[in-house]
Write a protein that binds this DNA or RNA. Structure first.
Lengths: 138, 138
DNA sequence: TAAAGTAATCGGAATGATTCCGAATTAAAG
DNA sequence: CTTTAATTCGGAATCATTCCGATTACTTTA
């Protein structure tokens, strides 16, 4: 997702165009990988020293709820990244060293043959973890 | 996994047979679903009022590392359950209301056709979330 | 079955991430 | 330019989890 697309969503829901949100979106746009809240904080403080935790966390949660960010959890750490372009549903390999991802075009839900007809399905998660080529090399 | 199998593992690694571990294992054995650390605490305090958080968390982490417990995360909460019998690798539907599970016999890794040969795969996660029939009923 | 040695536990303090809150600031609309 | 409401700030509060030193309880060995 581009910064512009993110703003389309934010403005549609009457969120204001603020400097902090601009900084956050720009950071996620260029990061292009999963980052921890701590990494976000450190990076964002370059552009706005004195930004409060509250502002960071409040916006991260809101972005995540609106589908602008994608949120996951790895080894007890919350990770965020810009949502992929939403052309089709897919999953990811996630590098446990750098947070980089690689798309996995299949969705296991297509192959689930177990009868879950009496169940109400709310969601699913499929992720592959490991180290990417450049982290192995480096 | 049965309580006896859990003890086989613990004793093999020279962990001692203590009352608290016995209580913890019995609780997980009869719970047979994903429970939060808080639920563990409340339940275990019935049998040993005054058990310390430290003891609970230390043993949960150790059980999890040894493969006696299975650990996951849902909506920011850590969940634990007794590891399934290890006859074959599989995944789960998890009820977000009661923590109950249903086995999903397939593993999406079998169908992953993306070339990850330059990647070092450390693990994967596949879970389906929703509500089970008895929680839907009420 | 007593003693010794070491692991495990306890209780409470410390930590660390996240959230809350009231006051001040800022964006957007009129 | 004013107004209004959203947003942010700063710091305190919360919550789960972990740490720590002192005590207790296993297990082994004699």
């Amino acid at each position: 997702m581009s910064i512009d697309e993110a703003w389309d969503i934010l403005l549609k829901y009457d969120y204001k165009r603020t400097r902090n949100r601009e900084i956050l979106l720009q950071f996620f746009d260029q990061a292009d990988r999963y980052v921890t809240a701590m990494e976000v904080r450190v990076a964002v403080e370059q552009d706005n020293p004195g930004i409060s935790f509250d502002t960071i966390y409040r916006n991260l949660a809101m972005f995540s709820k609106l589908g602008i960010l994608d949120e996951t959890e790895l080894n007890g750490e919350r990770l965020f990244r810009m949502q992929c372009a939403t052309d089709h549903h897919h999953h990811h390999f996630i590098c446990t060293t750098c947070g980089g991802t690689k798309s996995i075009p299949i969705c296991p839900m297509d192959s689930v043959t177990v009868n879950l007809s009496d169940y109400e399905i709310e969601g699913h998660k499929f992720e592959i973890y490991g180290r990417c080529p450049s982290c192995i090399a480096g």
